[in-house]
Computed example of a mutant assay.
Amino acid sequence: MIRYSGRTILEQPAQSTADAAGVTEAAAPPSLLAPFHGAPPPAPAWFDDAIGQAPARDFVEVRGARVEMLTWGARGKPGLLFLHGNGAHADWWSFIAPFFAADYRVAAMSWTGMGNSDHRAQYDLDIFVEEIMAVAHAAGLFDAGKPVFVGHSFGGLPLTACASRHGREIAAAITVDSPVMSPERRRERRSRRGPLKTPQPNRIYPTWQEAMNRFRFQPVQPCDNLYIADFIARGSLKQVAATANTPAGFTWKFDPFMWKGYHDGAPHIDMSTAQCPVAMIFGEKSIFLTEKVIDYALEVAPPGSPCVMIPEAHHHIMVDQPLAFVSALRGLLGGWPR
């Protein structure tokens, strides 16, 4: 459903994209993908068609580090940028972006420290905002005017900062199951969490299949569409050569040390400071979704900001209900912002 200031306007139906193998969460412990023994799970035609529309792949340099950039569609069309969550990579959007390529110049990026982007010695919110704008300009998303930016989970946080700092340059910002918490709620969570554990290097697995078998979603959630989990997992791994201290094998691409010393670089920023229209999409079964979250989000977002619920979706909405997500986003872009 879509809510404006707490009022229900429209319900967006869930669409079935059940895995053809019929493997459920209960049938696949301790691993999502182990039952397939390294083979891709059967996938529906729409998925094969989407990933068959391969993006152009390039890099943009931001403060001395290369940022991975994927693009679809012709330059000169309205711009649309997808931003992924923590520990993910640009190809989380490779089965979503092609649905928009006929009408938009579409791009997806990997934050530094994730995907095929470079790792940094230090990360902060200011850097991530710079990466958003650098990729958007390099991809040609401003060629036809102001673009729309879409950020999932963690990606919604630098997106919110970008909407605050550069909002007059963009048409709209859409967060997708990003935790919208008051400063008080954040302090409460930090106090309960206690001190952060010392980060450790990513484990190196001796074989590619053993690494694939360790793939999990964070936060933990069920997954019916295992063909999507398999596609994402394949893009999450890299092969590493042996060194004096480590064996050869396969490991995760994300930087395990990126949050050590990370800082926002600015006072708390929420949607109340956005300088452009804002919309929010949530998974109805998301671990982050509560009435308090929705109420607070609608309270701080600009007046009239849509809040869309996707039924039968957990936190990773594009994995759980990809076609419903596409429909909801098309609906937003078709009638909003005005």
Rank of each mutant, 00 (worst) to 15 (best):
I204E: 07
R330N: 08
A324T: 04
M69S: 07
I132W: 10
I204F: 11
R216I: 12
L329K: 02
M109P: 04
A88T: 11
A248L: 07
I269G: 01
P219I: 07
R185V: 07
F142H: 10
D320Y: 05
F142E: 09
L196M: 12
A45C: 04
A107H: 02
A324W: 04
A56I: 00
F128I: 01
R75M: 09
Q239F: 06
A297K: 07
V180D: 05
K197A: 13
Q122K: 15
Q218G: 11
T71G: 02
T246A: 15
I170R: 12
R216P: 01
F154D: 00
V300A: 05
K238R: 15
A45W: 04
G52S: 13
H315W: 13
T290I: 05
S236Q: 15
W93D: 11
T160F: 05
D19H: 01
M309C: 08
Q275E: 14
I9Q: 13
I174H: 05
S286D: 06
V220C: 09
S117F: 12
H316Q: 11
S94Y: 01
G283L: 06
E184G: 01
F217Y: 15
I127H: 14
A34Q: 14
E188G: 11
F99C: 04
V180M: 15
E169R: 15
A138I: 03
A102I: 05
W208A: 09
R203Y: 00
G155I: 13
E184H: 01
R193C: 08
D19F: 02
G304M: 04
E130P: 10
D320E: 09
A242M: 08
V220Q: 15
L196E: 13
M69A: 07
T243I: 08
D255V: 07
F100R: 09
I2Q: 05
Q15H: 03
M318R: 08
P219M: 11
W336F: 13
A161E: 07
F250G: 06
P179D: 15
A108K: 08
W208G: 02
D91W: 09
S182N: 14
A229F: 05
V148C: 15
E11F: 00
V326E: 00
S182C: 10
W208F: 14
A172G: 13
H263V: 00
R330Y: 01
G113Q: 13
I228R: 07
L80R: 05
G283K: 04
K238G: 10
M181K: 14
F288R: 02
M212G: 04
K253S: 10
D91L: 12
F215Y: 15
W336P: 01
S305K: 00
L81N: 05
S286K: 04
V150F: 09
D177V: 11
A134R: 13
V300R: 02
I232T: 15
A20M: 06
W208K: 12
G235M: 09
A27W: 02
A241Q: 15
F82L: 06
A144R: 14
P35N: 07
P302N: 07
D103S: 12
V319K: 03
G334Y: 03
V135N: 07
G249E: 06
H263Y: 01
A313C: 10
E61M: 09
T175Q: 08
S286I: 07
S5Y: 04
R168S: 15
L10S: 08
P247E: 04
W46S: 10
L10N: 09
L125P: 02
Y205N: 02
M133K: 12
A248V: 04
H315R: 11
S305L: 03
Q15P: 03
A328D: 00
R190T: 04
A229L: 06
F82I: 03
H84D: 08
G145F: 09
